[in-house]
Amino acid sequence: MPFVRRLLMRIATICLLLSTSIGAADEIFVAVASNFAATLKAIATRFEAASGHKIHISTGATGKQYAQIRHGAPFDVFFAADSRRPQLLESEGFALPGSRFTYALGKLVLWSPEAAYVDSHGKVLRNGKFRQLAMANPRLAPYGKAAREVLQAMGLWQRLQDRIVRGENIGQAFQFVQSGNAELGLVAWSQIRRDGQPVPGSYWNIPGNLYSPIEQQAVMLKPSLAAREFVAFVKSREARALIHDAGYDLP
């Protein structure tokens, strides 16, 4: 009997430990700008394997997600494509004070999937030998705002209005070009860069002085312990290496 009692107590202890371990796992709901979605998914996969937590990722335009958060969308963390929306959420009381940080610095490129179509100085924009130019909506997406600034700096914004097709976000703008619906696109460098492989098609790496810095910030929206652990992981050396390899500069 003492042996049976000890065995039952041991089994009960194991069950308690298992239930505690299972209970410790949590779900984290994250909103992320389209340009960073693939990179965040790669980071989330590693975090899930290490922590046991589950990350649910919602992708979209930064401006649209900002509006959703203000209207009660149940996100724990917001990874924006700019610094303005996280700052607004913090000042408006929708984010945890002091949780905002810059996780990446974005780059804009002019890209075509066709080889030798885009020259190294973007002269193709001036010669007009294209039907449509894709870009993200400047009102919703920071990369769209940067694209507008580039065209304005080149004196082409008004001239190209009838050729511009606007995606709701940078992901949609990229799809317009990738599918062939537009010959050219002002897209994120991270969308076309392949680590260790040649970039498909042709592109112009747009000088940074033609558009405002794309400082991508994240902010916590709820005081979740699991979300804090995820944010800490994003700031780790391992995650920062993934971000850099995906085509972003680091702050």
Rank of each mutant, 00 (worst) to 15 (best):
L242C: 00
A67I: 08
L105E: 11
I192W: 12
Q87E: 11
L156M: 10
P2L: 13
A134G: 12
K41H: 09
G23E: 08
I164R: 03
R159Q: 15
A81I: 08
R84P: 05
H56D: 02
L40D: 08
A173Q: 12
Y248P: 03
K145D: 11
G144E: 08
I206L: 06
E183A: 14
E215G: 10
R6Y: 13
Y66I: 02
Q191L: 13
V77Y: 01
E92D: 13
L151R: 07
Q175C: 12
A239C: 05
L40K: 05
I243N: 01
S120R: 15
G171Y: 05
E27V: 01
Y66C: 05
E183W: 11
M1G: 13
I192L: 07
E238Q: 04
L96T: 01
R70Q: 14
E27S: 15
A49M: 05
H53M: 02
K222M: 02
F174D: 04
S112P: 13
W204D: 04
K64M: 07
P251S: 15
Y248W: 11
L125F: 08
A232Q: 14
G106R: 07
Q197I: 07
A239E: 01
L160Q: 00
L110I: 10
F78S: 03
D162W: 06
L221C: 00
N209Y: 06
N181Y: 11
S212A: 14
H244Q: 12
I28P: 01
D195P: 06
Y143R: 04
H53L: 05
L186E: 08
I206K: 00
T59Q: 13
S112T: 12
L221F: 02
L250R: 02
V165I: 08
Y203P: 07
K41P: 01
Q65N: 14
Q68D: 05
S224Q: 06
R126E: 08
S112Y: 14
E92F: 06
G196I: 11
N35G: 13
A182Y: 09
Y248G: 10
P223A: 09
A50I: 06
A49Y: 05
Y117M: 11
L242D: 03
Y211E: 01
A218Q: 07
L186K: 04
I170M: 11
D26Q: 15
K107W: 00
L105P: 05
I57C: 00
L133D: 02
P223G: 08
R228K: 10
A42H: 11
M154R: 15
P74Y: 03
S99G: 01
V150Y: 05
A173S: 14
Y117F: 15
L7Y: 09
G23H: 10
M9Q: 13
F75I: 02
G106P: 01
K64Y: 10
L221I: 03
